[in-house]
Nucleic acid binder design. Structure first.
Lengths: 156, 156
DNA sequence: GTATGAAACTTTAAGCTTGAAATATTTTTC
DNA sequence: GAAAAATATTTCAAGCTTAAAGTTTCATAC
């Protein structure tokens, strides 16, 4: 989804198609760079980072379904990633509240420390990778993307 | 890479971090919707669509390495996707030019027809999914993303 | 209290993705 | 022109991803 079907020079909707293609190329370029650095510097992956980032925001823990909803990925997907993080000792499942179907997932002490270090580097990388975007431009772009998102969210 | 590590309210680089998170969430949301529709309506996938889109632009064919460079994915990845497209009769490999290491990959007649249909639907979907973005706004956003991209490309 | 259905999660099969190693071919160097 | 380096591609192992089907537990209705 990086190329797009020969957008004709003009016509209704062509500008949106062009926008979509640019958006996708930008995020894929940055994503590839981040993935490579996460691997090289911390021997981890983007999905693991995503899960840890979500859990870091929720010290009390999250349900599996909260995680998958928040990260925009499927349920089964989260199961696998959390499994691996648990086996690495970075995340823990606690099956304690009344509902025995659910398990509260949270970062371990070790996971929290590890994440803090990775997150600091991550923020630096983003600043570096996006340094051709001025802070002001960044705010405006964010605003536009935000309004797209909030409009979109109510629809499905 | 959809959440991001608790962006502090302010500070240097925070606006860029926020921008990155929005960018990623927007593209993931749209991507998920496209993937679902491609599956439901045409029983195909986003990676297959990407490869076919690239080949549609190059009737004379492309090398595997051209494909992987253009699509921003690894070599081995393209091999697998093309293998499946070949087995479905939508794509053909031609090992004909002087260099016997390379193979020219192109759409078959059937593949070209199939792609044209899917692409028409795809363009409509994008118009629909992005209809909260005005055409004017789309052009401005595209411009900003473009300048990011061209600045970035010279660097690595 | 027991059947019905809903909810939370896991498992499975198929496919996508990467980085690294392997293979085959061409080009360069001496 | 043979050895070495470079290029184009494929193979491989590990992990990510989805949709669909399966399991367990909970809530509702009767």
């Amino acid at each position: 989804m990086v190329a797009g079907p020969l957008p004709a020079r003009s016509g209704p909707g062509k500008d949106r198609l062009r926008l979509w293609i640019r958006l996708l190329r930008a995020s894929r370029t940055i994503e590839a760079e981040l993935r490579e650095r996460l691997k090289k510097e911390f021997n981890t992956t983007l999905p693991r980072f995503d899960v840890m980032a979500a859990l870091y925001r929720a010290p009390e823990g999250m349900l599996m379904s909260d995680l998958s909803r928040f990260l925009l990925v499927s349920n089964g997907n989260v199961t696998g990633i959390v499994d691996r993080l648990v086996s690495e000792g970075l995340v823990a499942r606690a099956r304690r509240n009344g509902d025995r179907r659910t398990s509260m997932v949270r970062l371990t002490e070790e996971g929290s420390k590890a994440f803090a270090m990775i997150a600091a580097a991550h923020e630096g990388w983003i600043g570096e990778l996006l340094d051709t975007v001025s802070e002001d431009e960044a705010r405006r772009l964010t605003g536009m993307l935000n309004s797209f998102r909030s409009n979109w969210e109510g629809r499905e």
